[in-house]
């Protein structure tokens, strides 16, 4: 476990490190968004050819999304994924630093705002490593509630620096899943105060996962968002964002689930149904936007049942 943890931290340092961010930051200032995308094609070529761990992480998804592909096609798909992710990272930085303006349309905004304002129990925002969930978060700064991100603050300090996410920031705060009991006491408290808690629905972060069907195979996804929502009596709003053109994003928050345990039926069975609904939404998204799925974590591996990250 400690070895895996150390390895995860080393990998996080290797990719998306501070010099890398500095390079792209400077490039955006000097050459603009499209000019910086140009560098990206070269940098991603290196990763797609030489970074074994990154390739292996991406292939677990590529092989399920594009089954039966040959060696070259698989590598090309990995490359396209890396370029797509790189563009979205650059967009994120450019948006937050006001170096570029993006048209971000929110699908289901009115319903979402009604839930935020009506909900006395707060709500859970369930998202995944698809599209640009962080850019979507920037649109939530004016909702009048604090958004708490359940994430490891130590995961990648450079990414956080670039996003200007800090514990002190007023509208977006972090709850660490590494604190006692995975931070659930804090989560329940902020939900009770009517705030929003954002949870990645495709990463366990130490919480238990449940078996579902994903891209035609058995996979394990965490049920924490639904267990917490069922206990707290709050809704789960699914947030999926997609880059539809160079300067345009669509953030979809129109799918809302209301998990409530029915009678004495097996809770695990009920949780499984809710997680499967979420996974089905992800599948529809992935079928439409295959190169905006950055699920570089093997959710099909049985060890993901109790994955740490």
């Amino acid at each position: 476990m400690q070895k895996a943890e150390a390895s995860r931290k080393i990998e996080a340092r290797k990719r998306g490190n501070r010099p890398g961010f500095w390079f792209f930051r400077t490039s955006v200032r000097l050459f603009g968004l499209r000019g910086t995308y140009g560098f990206l094609y070269i940098v991603c070529l290196y990763y797609a050819l030489c970074d074994r761990s990154a390739i292996s992480a991406a292939l677990s998804y590529v092989d399920r999304r594009f089954p039966g592909s040959g060696f070259l096609r698989r590598r090309l798909d990995v490359y396209r994924l890396f370029v797509s992710q790189g563009k979205q990272l650059i967009d994120r930085y450019a948006a937050i630093s006001a170096l570029a303006i993006f048209d971000i349309r929110i699908k289901g905004y009115e319903q979402f705002m009604a839930l935020v304002q009506d909900s006395r129990q707060g709500l859970i925002l369930l998202t995944a490593h698809v599209g640009n969930w962080q850019i979507a978060m920037t649109t939530l700064k004016d909702i009048g509630k604090t958004v708490y991100l359940l994430m490891r603050p130590e995961d990648n300090p450079a990414v956080q620096d670039s996003l200007h996410i800090s514990r002190e920031q007023v509208h977006i705060k972090i709850i660490s899943p590494e604190q006692h009991l995975g931070g659930v006491v804090e989560i329940m408290n902020v939900l009770r105060e009517g705030h929003v808690v954002s949870i990645m629905g495709d990463r366990s972060y130490g919480f238990n996962a449940i078996e579902v069907s994903f891209l035609g195979e058995k996979a394990w996804f965490p049920h924490s968002a639904f267990s917490i929502a069922a206990a707290a009596g709050c809704p789960v709003v699914v947030l999926l964002s997609v880059k539809v053109s160079a300067h345009r994003y669509v953030v979809d928050v129109s799918n809302v689930l209301y998990p409530r345990y029915e009678g004495r039926r097996d809770k695990r069975e009920q949780l499984q149904q809710w997680v499967q609904k979420f996974v089905a939404m992800l599948e529809r998204y992935i079928n439409q936007y295959p190169y905006q799925c950055f699920l570089f974590h093997n959710v099909w591996r049985e060890e993901s049942k109790s994955a740490t990250g």
Binding site: V185, G206, I228, A232
Partner: peptide, 30 residues
């Protein structure tokens, strides 16, 4: 596990009207 903790937090609230506010104390309470 941590998700059982969610249920305990709710049980304390529903049955005893209690909220565990102090995260530091959570470890010894639970």
């Amino acid at each position: 596990d941590s998700l059982d903790a969610v249920e305990i937090v709710v049980l304390l609230q529903r049955n005893f009207g209690l909220e565990v506010k102090d995260m530091e104390k959570g470890r010894e309470i639970f």
